[in-house]
Design a protein around this nucleic acid. Structure first.
Lengths: 390, 390
DNA sequence: GAAACTTATTAAATATTTTATTAAGTTTCT
DNA sequence: AGAAACTTAATAAAATATTTAATAAGTTTC
């Protein structure tokens, strides 16, 4: 990774920075950074952005990216049941607002084809002289380098999905696991910004984990680190899709919360959700969030149940990793700070106080986290050096 | 850490290396390394050690440390019930053979005083013009940088134990947690030598964990990473010293194995250990190891019980960390490869196959691991630059 | 409002790395 | 067996980057 690439990426994450800040961030000397920034300014990729606030001496010139001369970022965020497409610029501003539509990843071929169609439709409406980069995030054993999702059989379109999208769309594609991407985004743009060691939980239909160590995503030996979903947690009889019993995923995921709600409603518990169920025949996540925020006892009971088990899982994480922060992100973060009391109760029960006290648990407040995180990996995994001469 | 310091430490770990190997290890250029090695040779700290085996071209000159011009390493390895003292040179050869004597760390003052006495006795018999470095390893929440063991109250001699030993002995002292030190030693001298990401389990009276990521000990936010002992593991009623139930420590430690043996023998199970108990009134670890190796069913039952629970704990580690290798080290490694079948059985039950298959579990075969590891941290934590001018 | 103090920028000196060259030892082919 | 071709190590020269010092541009204090 060369210096120009690094400078562009730092400015993508931090918007406006001075030479000396960039020198610190890239660990290169001031004269060297000055030289490279000069080049980028003369090529129209960087802009002078006024002088920085006073720190007691001569004020530093700040620089920012010139979004006009950089490509648009097409984001394709795939989860178990939905896909969201959007287009952003290098300031993370929406060029095309998010479009969310149902896709079942278990119907892999069908899902990929409909995603391709939607994306093409969107791109044809836009014109940027083909200056696009594409980011794709999805669950599974994803290998970013090779662009493969090894959770699918080799003949599935989802297996060599990077290659598939590159051929179908005609632009460079970057692929990442959804939880890994969210971890990176929370560390760059969210509450993890000032921390070197952060764990980010992707509370979603499953429960993912991204591990940031020394400001970098920890991938493990074969790229599968963070398989939090399937750690043995409870002596329950609930069977997991992986074939084992007592996995965290079947005790602490959003799917699990919705299932609890379904059970409770079947048992005729009084709840505002009874009327929603009657009307829509189904309870979805936003229904549950609204009921939870409104103080509905059934909703609270279901959410508390998964949150407590999540907390028990976090206790194990804290003991092993001693992280500075744990950020609860993903769709489940929509429940907000109301999750914290139950998590803290579980930590109190399962953690050595000295350890739980040195880790801060935070609920993410980043909006559109799946899209932002997809844009983030699109940029960070692309070699920006190539844009020097355009 | 400057280059001279790095070169000395690399040669401590790898014995004999050529310029180009050192250049690779230190990530510095060949001319620079050549210059520094030249200095060290002229000062008598390095010796030319013949040319390397042929690799198809001109043979490289190898260099090694000149132990005569480097200090002796005094190692003080403290565990829950025993302390072992030894003296080594920079080739990890014994200058004074290990001396193991009982010390109860819970009687902190008494233990420290008796260790000091033994060490002084040993040093006075030796003469190296006061050219010693001292390493101390012990269990607890140890902070190597400040030299404090925060598991003890502030007025205990064990709290500011580095300072205490430095004053009492008059030589620089390096302090580390026992499991952290063992992890570093297994990574430098043991089966973890060729791996970047290794987990080392210190199977002892408790169960410690040292995490090596990218060839470095991972310490976590406040230095307490690897508190494997107290992760919630079982729904058992056995109470842990930490006040919680179901901790790994009370299900998978050597203390636990000995307790099982005691119970089994009380229940009059036939065993070779019955006669040992009758003779010595107590069963110690070496008795259990001998019985286990001899195929004694009671010994095997006790060891299998803790090993299975350890395996369950390892499953969690593998899911989260996806390590290349897990090395079972510490006193428990004395049971040898006989531990593996039970561990593998537990992994099969609690791990996703894709993950367990990508991690290799190994039983350590390093002799004197606690002493070697103590020497290792004594050297690696000392700034070797100072020895350039002596 | 000048003097003392900070900090950014630029210039010069120093240090390091890269590249090219030369030396030394292996292998291969006749 | 012995020379030619091939590797790799060690050294020298050139290119590059960093450190240090000097200067410029603001702030704060008295």
């Amino acid at each position: 990774m060369n210096l120009i690439d690094q400078i562009i990426k730092q400015l993508y994450c931090f918007e406006r920075q001075s030479i000396s800040e960039l020198s610190f961030l890239t660990k290169k000397s001031v004269p060297k950074v000055t030289e490279e920034v000069g080049k980028l300014v003369s090529e129209g990729i960087l802009l002078e952005a006024g002088s920085a606030a006073s720190t007691g001496g001569r004020r530093a010139m700040q620089y920012q990216l010139s979004v006009e001369n950089l490509p648009y970022i097409v984001t394709i965020a795939i989860d178990q049941y939905f896909t969201t497409i959007a287009v952003l610029n290098f300031r993370n501003e929406f060029v095309v607002l998010p479009n969310r539509f149902p896709t079942n990843i278990n119907n892999d071929q069908e899902a990929v084809i409909s995603i391709t169609k939607e994306t093409k439709k969107l791109l044809s409406a836009l014109d940027k002289n083909g200056n696009f980069i594409v980011g794709v995030t999805m669950p599974g054993f994803v290998d970013s380098e090779s662009g493969l999702n090894r959770s699918f059989p080799k003949d599935s379109l989802c297996y060599s999905i990077k290659e598939y999208f590159e051929n179908a769309l005609g632009f460079p594609v970057q692929l990442a696991n959804d939880s890994s991407a969210i971890a990176i985004a929370e560390h760059r743009f969210g509450d993890g910004r000032r921390s070197q060691n952060v764990l980010v939980v992707n509370l979603n239909w499953g429960v993912g984990l991204g591990i940031i160590i020394e400001n970098q995503l920890y991938k493990g030996h074969s790229g599968y680190a963070g398989e939090f979903s399937h750690i043995p947690l409870a002596n329950s009889k609930r069977l997991c899709s992986c074939g084992k019993k007592g996995c965290l995923e079947v005790e602490a995921s959003l799917s699990c919360a919705l299932e609890y709600v379904r059970e409770f409603l079947e048992e005729k518990e009084p709840s505002v959700l009874q009327s929603v169920l009657a009307k829509n025949r189904v309870i979805d996540l936003s229904d549950l969030v609204r009921a939870f925020e409104a103080g509905d006892q059934t909703a609270i009971k279901a959410v508390k149940a998964i949150t407590y088990m999540l907390g028990k899982g976090l206790a194990t994480l804290i003991h092993i990793m001693n992280p500075e922060k744990i950020i609860i992100s993903g769709n489940g973060a929509a429940f907000g700070r109301g999750l914290l009391p139950t998590i803290q109760a579980a930590l109190q029960e399962y953690c050595i106080p000295r350890l739980s006290h040195s880790t801060e648990v935070i609920i993410s407040n980043l909006a559109h986290i799946q899209i932002i995180s997809t844009a983030c990996i699109a940029v960070l995994q692309t070699n920006m050096y190539q844009y020097q001469h355009k």
